[in-house]
Nucleic acid binder design. Structure first.
Length: 877
RNA sequence: GGGCGUUUGGCUCAGUUGGUUAGAGCAUCUCCCUUACAAGGAGAGGGUCGGGGGUUCGAAUCCCUCAACGCCCA
């Protein structure tokens, strides 16, 4: 592929009144017709640049945060395309998960019941909003999982159209023929296939273990989905009675309602107060259950009385103690967040009083139980003083409203290095193989991997999502045999074990003793999202495409999901392909509101982008976005959009000038680049060559913002200084030869600048390009500095700088004298050092004309000085 | 409590390996309707680079320390 500047047409015309109106619609449909951004799949891997686009969540609407980060990616995509790469730039939609599930439930008044069979003839329900009032009060209709997913597809398709339209208006150079949705069959097939491979390699396993449980969602929650929230609580000082001495041992707890679940007391091994008691026992108040006093380093002598009650389970430290001290399991909280209604055996053993006390708590929520038990303790004289209010961090599911409980249950896990130092080391190594932009983001990855304390919990007790492609045989009592799961055939994927029948069985055997039952859980949404590279590149389904695009070149994403999305994707690829999923990670910052707070739906400070695109135009909005440094949080600033718009208008006008020169009738005069003979023109081109070097290096380092800043800064110099200096000569004041030099340089410079701006301002650059060039600027070659240097020949950037400096001095003199800029100058006397004086001398004729000066003298001196003498009166005044 | 990042004129930001009077744009003020551009142009004023200490001939730029803010994790 040639990298020389494309040859202009010879029949160009320049619009009389160029404008920015309607560019988006016009060029978007043109690009679509021309297939400008189609992936060329004849390209081999080294000629491809592939992008693992983040699939936005399809619920609600896009906001400026999307516009911001997706623009960053697009500038890189456009740069790589101009560098001759076949850019693989698909778009995904994340319509998997709770938000979609809830929307479909409310919109259609339905509820998923996975036990129901699929009804292929089910009519689409009338949306709730279109139903009569009295009908809206009816209970939701239960439908099968497959029918439910079909409704999800139906509803999200509409949202996806709106998203695509907005992204098109923004000018993303996505190949819109390549989209995927995370609930579609393809994605579910990939997720299930990857899971089966993990299972075959023993990377996926099930275990009965304590899990953090959201009692409202009735669902297990993974480490990555946790957050701490500061919550009010109170320390309750409660005596346990020592079985030997009869003395009270005071513990302090924030969760007195769990006394019935107490399995031990614990103190620090070095704590002299309690050392004599280790190995002896106490009885719990109210229930009289005998528990042992144990020693463990995690007990904090400074906290409360220094001795703590271990329950199964009150918090995650209890889990550690329970595991390391091999304690009994005595759960009393059930999956709905209430105290179990049946009296547990260890309580029943305590006699009628214990049973009576427990029965008062049974069936209550933990919150109600706490109030009750405080009363009971007080009545029994087992509460020392009043509870002391404190504020402490409590674990929540990030989308949940009530504190998490800890329950034991059977779940699927995926190995991620959380319990395996060797795997952890390998994943850390992957992190250092990856090129991070900016580099310091790697540390977040490393911190996360080093802080893992368990494998990845991937099963969720939800209805909607990708099912595990697994059934279990039932024994003669109808109990599932979890140790011998029946895996689905790969060719049959995707499957829904709730309605599909495993091979070797008949549907009539479902849930019958000796028959089979489907795994009831679905996968964590990250289990699908972590496979976006495999989904996009056709892993396992289109080996030819996979070969050309994987591992991908770039994963663009935001920094707060390094621990989730980026890490989990690295895990899946490491396990499946023994490689990184991509070579580069481009991490975008956030958009902050003017108070420097992150824009988020929950804060209500979100700005939607549609009106911005209408008001300022896509190029201007992109200009603002591309000004945000990689990885840096950026303040939302409409002022930047105004500047972007001004820049676009300036481009139109400067182009109109440059291309309108040289002929009276407006038709084109194409100059051979060898026509560039004047020192000023050569100096400008030499300067431009440096700019091309700079911006190319910046883009190669994924620093689009730097590339934009450099280009913009050059462009304003170009307009304010160069155009003014050559204007009269370009019109022909010093003959055809000198004019041709200017015109040729202007054409080459404009061609170069349009291509440098194209990744940022795709619409206005394409518009101008279409005036005088063949094809699209977006598939034109990226500018070549060596070509410019060749044309610049002996050009010295200093000559351009000197010309600009002296012209500025003349302008300053006129402005300070309150004269117009065309006011004549009698004399400009310049004194300067050797090299600077010589550089100026070479362009002195251009300076003289631009300043409208009678004469310009250049003398050698040790110090620079410019003296401007204005004419007394303008000619003809 | 740990990690990462940020702190430059009224506002939003540049400042690449330490080096000439710290740069833009917006805003402010002054001037100019000059045939690419009045949704424009030319110019001016305004900061000593969060505080303190150190290294150096020389630091916004390197080191130490403190502070504020943001994010992530305990």
């Amino acid at each position: 592929m040639s990298t020389a500047a494309p040859t202009p047409r010879t029949d160009w015309t320049v619009p009389e009144k160029p404008g920015l109106e309607d560019l988006e619609t016009r060029w978007d449909s043109h690009w679509e017709e021309q297939g400008t951004y189609r992936f060329d799949r004849t390209a081999t891997r080294d000629g491809v640049f592939s992008i693992d686009t983040p699939p936005p969540t399809v619920s609600g609407s896009l906001h400026v945060g999307h516009v911001f980060s997706y623009t960053h990616t697009d500038t890189i995509a456009r740069y790589q395309r101009m560098r001759g790469k076949s850019v693989f730039y698909p778009m995904g939609w994340d319509d998997n998960g709770l938000p979609t599930e809830r929307r479909v439930q409310n919109y259609y008044g339905v509820q998923c019941d996975p036990s129901l069979p699929y009804d292929p003839a089910m009519p689409t329900p009338t949306p709730m909003s279109e139903r009569p009032k009295e009908e809206q009060k009816k209970l939701p209709v239960n439908i099968s999982r497959r029918n439910f997913i079909e409704l999800c597809n139906l509803l999200t398709t509409e949202d996806e159209k709106a998203f695509e339209q907005l992204f098109r208006t923004l000018g993303l150079s996505v190949d819109w023929s390549r989209t995927y949705a995370t609930i579609d069959d393809h994605c579910r097939r990939v997720a299930q296939r990857a899971f089966l491979h993990n299972l075959d390699r023993d990377e996926a396993y099930q275990a009965e273990a304590p899990v953090l449980w959201d009692v409202d969602f009735r669902c297990a929650v993974a480490q990555a989905e946790l957050e701490d929230r500061e919550m009010p609580g109170a320390y309750h000082r409660i005596p346990f009675v020592h079985t030997g001495t009869g003395e009270p041992i005071f513990i302090e707890t924030t969760r007195p309602e769990l006394i019935a679940a107490c399995v031990s007391l614990v103190a620090h091994p070095d704590d002299e107060r309690y050392q004599p008691l280790f190995g002896t026992t106490v009885r719990s108040p109210l229930f009289g259950v005998e528990v042992e006093i144990r020693a463990h380093e995690l007990a904090d002598p400074e906290k409360g009385s220094g001795i703590a009650m271990i329950c199964t389970f009150g918090d995650i430290t209890d889990v550690t103690w329970w595991r390391e001290l091999q304690l009994d399991t005595r759960p009393i909280v059930t999956d709905n967040g209430r105290i179990a209604s049946e009296v547990p055996e260890w309580i029943a053993a305590g006699g009628p009083d214990a049973i009576a006390a427990y029965e008062k708590l049974a069936g209550k929520t933990v919150k109600q139980a706490q109030v009750l038990i405080v009363e009971l303790l007080r009545e029994a004289g087992a509460l020392d003083g009043e509870p002391k209010p404190i504020t402490h961090p409590v674990k929540f599911y990030e989308k949940g409203d009530r504190p998490l409980e800890i329950l034991t249950s059977r779940q699927w896990y995926l190995r991620n290095g959380g319990r395996d130092l060797e795997l952890r080391g390998a994943l850390l190594e992957r992190g250092s193989e990856l090129h991070w932009h900016p580099g310091h983001m790697r540390v977040r990855y490393e911190n996360w991997v080093n802080g893992l304390n368990g494998d990845w919990l991937v099963s969720r007790q939800r209805f909607f999502g990708v099912s595990f492609p697994i059934w279990y045989p039932l024994d003669a009592d109808g109990q599932p045999m979890h140790d011998s799961p029946i895996r689905a055939e790969e060719a049959a994927l995707p499957v829904d074990p709730a309605t599909d029948t495993p091979q070797g069985y008949d549907e009539s055997q479902r849930d019958q003793p000796g028959g089979f039952t489907g795994d009831p859980d679905v996968m964590d949404t990250w289990a699908t999202s972590s496979l976006t590279p495999q989904i996009a590149t056709g892993w396992g389904e289109d080996p030819d495409l996979f070969e050309r695009t994987f591992p991908m070149d770039l994963r663009p994403q935001a920094h707060e999901i390094i621990r989730t999305w980026l890490f989990s994707t690295a895990v899946r690829s490491h396990l499946e392909h023994d490689s990184l999923p991509w070579r580069n990670a481009g991490i975008s910052g956030w958009v902050l509101d003017p108070d420097r707070k992150k824009m988020s739906k929950s804060k209500g400070n979100v700005v939607t982008p549609l009106h911005l695109l209408e008001q300022y135009g896509a190029d201007a909005v992109r200009y603002w976005a591309a000004s945000g440094r990689p990885g840096t949080d950026t303040t939302f600033d409409e002022g930047q959009m105004k500047i972007g718009r001004r820049l676009s208008i300036k481009l139109l006008n400067a182009s109109r000038f440059a291309l309108g020169l040289g002929s009276a009738d407006g038709s084109a005069v194409v100059h051979d680049a060898s026509a560039v003979t004047e020192p000023l023109d050569r100096a400008m081109l030499a300067d431009l060559a440096r700019l091309v070097d700079d911006t190319t290096a910046a883009f190669d380092g994924y620093d689009y913002a730097r590339a934009l800043e450099r280009t913009e800064s050059f462009f304003w110099q170009f307009c304010d200084q160069y155009l003014e200096l050559v204007k009269t000569r370009a019109y022909g004041s010093r003959g055809d030869h000198a004019a041709a030099s200017a015109q040729a340089a202007l054409q080459l410079a404009l061609s170069t600048l349009l291509r440098l701006f194209a990744p940022f301002l795709p619409f206005v650059t394409e518009e101008i390009w279409s005036w005088w060039q063949e094809g699209s600027v977006h598939t034109a070659p990226w500018p070549d500095a060596s070509e410019l240097r060749e044309r610049a020949a002996d050009g010295d950037p200093l000559a351009f700088a000197m010309g600009a400096e002296v012209l500025s001095a003349a302008r300053r003199a006129k402005t300070e004298a309150k004269r117009s800029l065309k006011w004549p100058v009698e004399l400009i006397a310049v004194a300067d050092t050797g090299a600077r004086a010589a550089a100026l001398q070479s362009v002195v004729a251009d300076v003289q004309e631009a300043a409208n000066a009678e004469s310009v003298t250049v003398d050698l001196a040790a110090e620079s000085a410019v003296t401007v003498t204005l004419a007394a009166e303008p000619d003809g005044a």
